[in-house]
Amino acid sequence: MNTDSLGYIFISASLINNFVLAYFLGICPFLGVSGKIGTASKMGAAVTFVMLISSICAYTIHYLLLRINAPYLQLISYIVVIASTVQLVEMFIKKMSPALFRALGIFLPLITTNCAILGLALFQTSKDYDMIQSVIYALGAGTGFTLALVLMAGLREQLDLADVPKLIKGTALVLLVAGILSLAFMGFSGLGNQ
């Protein structure tokens, strides 16, 4: 399978190299916001949205940096640009749709410093994706993130009812489940190799 095709990029980012369960990026919201399916899917949507924006920004910055022959500024410029773009988007949403702003709430500013976002920007640069590929890659990564979060939230909602030993109740149990989920996602690793 052609590894540059858009379909492959999407599947690869969402399942095979899932940001949370294969790269272990963005573990903080994965553990923190996976208590309820409702908030988990909202958080996933917000992350996907920020990923899309930062992917476009990163592509533009990378292009500019290559022009002036200063690729060593990549990391620091990504951080600055992503943070301020999200800030701008937040202001825009607050003005245009207070309801959406309240729904995303604290998540938006928190996502800005999420390592999954920066990871996405760095990966897409190192893989030399063009504009459309970058956007698809961000979409795939966001979908994968949402999938991991919603799966985890569903499991945790069921686990709340389960009779588990007191010793592993709470975070320990969540980490155990995260490990098992991650193992399950490792099963995708052969996908597309034939």
Binding site: A70, S77, V81
Partner: peptide
């Protein structure tokens, strides 16, 4: 180059 690029970028964003 680094100074002017980053300076310009941050100023623009600000």
């Amino acid at each position: 180059i680094a100074l002017s690029f980053l300076g310009g970028l941050t100023l623009l964003l600000a």
